[in-house]
Amino acid sequence: MKKLCIFLLVSLLFLLAGCCQQVKMSGHQECKTATYAVLDDEGRKLTFSEKPQHIVSLTYGTDEILTDLVDSKRITAYSRWAGDSGISFITRDQMFKVGRKVNENLEAILALHPDLVIASSATNSDLITGLETAGLKVYIARSPKNYSEMQEKILNLAAAVGETEKGEALVKQMDEKLRNLEARMRKLPDDQRKVAVAFNFTSAMGRRGDLLDNMLEMAHVINGVATLPQNNNLEHGQLVISKEMVVGINPDVFLLPTWNFDNRRDVQGYAQQIANDPAYRNIKAVKNGEIKFVPDKYRYVASHHFADAVEKVARTVYPEMF
């Protein structure tokens, strides 16, 4: 029996030695992260022998999540939109700290020698194939359609970079912020909820079941476009919303775009165009001067700033509640 106990003890020590590495730090031993595997948002398996230390992010949403998950030294490059306050929550100081942005270009990314590239479900499939053919690990993050999927996006990415606890903390912070907002907004009577229609620089936008729809719902705003039949007026898979449809909705509020992404958009000029459009003359939003702006970095949020975006919408539509 004594020999068996000794054998088991020795075996345990060998197992511990296999997953730990001696580090000369004050004479102590430190266990480095063992090999771990994760699934990305498309269910593809990635295996890591250690936490990635040279991460390249190709999307503004994952830029933002990574910034609150890992030390900036572990981020080799942000996406091209980092530091653009029109669409990104990454500040210029954070951008300068990382010091590099990269476009979705195979040669440019390979030159950075990353140990993890974070792409999205919208990233060109040829680029992803090229990166993987070159031997790089590519993690594909989803484009969430609701809050639950946003939570999963954050938790899954946190697991991939070896920071599960930090991911859980980010989700907890979102949950708490949204609970506090709901406690305030539930005081609004249902019959006083406002109907809103959002616009891009082309026309009215949105549809039932997308992230903006979920955001408006959580802000106690009725998404006017979601009240329309969804099986008609599709063009290239997108719902085409005519002026006549907007008139039929007769929304209380117009939410207009703000991001001058190509330096050719006149934000205030577009607002004047909408306000002076004869087709919209008798709509409540125009008659009552309820033409408002929610910055596009909130409207197109793709990270844990979702909770901030819901609050921003609520504050914009119902300033009297704050």
Results as ranks from 00 to 15, higher is better:
residue 52 P to R: 07
residue 52 P to M: 07
residue 52 P to F: 08
residue 54 H to S: 14
residue 57 S to T: 10
residue 57 S to F: 06
residue 58 L to D: 04
residue 59 T to M: 13
residue 59 T to K: 09
residue 59 T to V: 12
residue 61 G to Q: 09
residue 62 T to I: 09
residue 64 E to T: 02
residue 64 E to D: 09
residue 65 I to G: 08
residue 65 I to K: 07
residue 66 L to H: 07
residue 67 T to W: 10
residue 68 D to E: 15
residue 68 D to R: 13
residue 68 D to Q: 14
residue 69 L to I: 00
residue 69 L to V: 01
residue 70 V to I: 15
residue 70 V to M: 05
residue 71 D to Q: 12
residue 73 K to F: 00
residue 73 K to E: 13
residue 73 K to P: 00
residue 74 R to L: 11
residue 74 R to A: 15
residue 74 R to Q: 15
residue 74 R to P: 01
residue 75 I to M: 13
residue 75 I to G: 02
residue 75 I to Q: 10
residue 76 T to M: 13
residue 76 T to V: 13
residue 76 T to K: 15
residue 77 A to G: 06
residue 78 Y to M: 02
residue 79 S to W: 11
residue 79 S to A: 11
residue 80 R to G: 02
residue 80 R to Q: 13
residue 80 R to A: 14
residue 80 R to W: 04
residue 81 W to M: 13
residue 82 A to D: 03
residue 83 G to F: 03
residue 83 G to K: 08
residue 84 D to Y: 12
residue 84 D to Q: 10
residue 84 D to S: 04
residue 84 D to W: 05
residue 85 S to C: 01
residue 87 I to D: 00
residue 88 S to D: 04
residue 89 F to L: 04
residue 90 I to T: 13
residue 90 I to V: 15
residue 91 T to G: 11
residue 91 T to W: 10
residue 92 R to Y: 01
residue 92 R to A: 14
residue 93 D to E: 15
residue 94 Q to N: 05
residue 94 Q to D: 02
residue 94 Q to V: 03
residue 94 Q to E: 15
residue 94 Q to M: 10
residue 95 M to N: 12
residue 97 K to D: 11
residue 98 V to A: 04
residue 98 V to K: 07
residue 99 G to R: 05
residue 100 R to Q: 14
residue 100 R to V: 00
residue 100 R to H: 15
residue 102 V to G: 03
residue 102 V to L: 05
residue 103 N to V: 01
residue 105 N to E: 10
residue 106 L to M: 04
residue 106 L to H: 04
residue 106 L to A: 03
residue 107 E to Q: 14
residue 107 E to L: 10
residue 107 E to D: 14
residue 108 A to V: 00
residue 108 A to Y: 02
residue 108 A to D: 14
residue 108 A to E: 15
residue 108 A to P: 00
residue 109 I to K: 08
residue 109 I to S: 09
residue 110 L to V: 07
residue 111 A to S: 15
residue 111 A to H: 10
residue 111 A to R: 11
residue 112 L to E: 02
residue 113 H to E: 14
residue 114 P to W: 05
residue 114 P to T: 05
residue 116 L to Y: 04
residue 116 L to R: 08
residue 116 L to C: 09
residue 117 V to C: 03
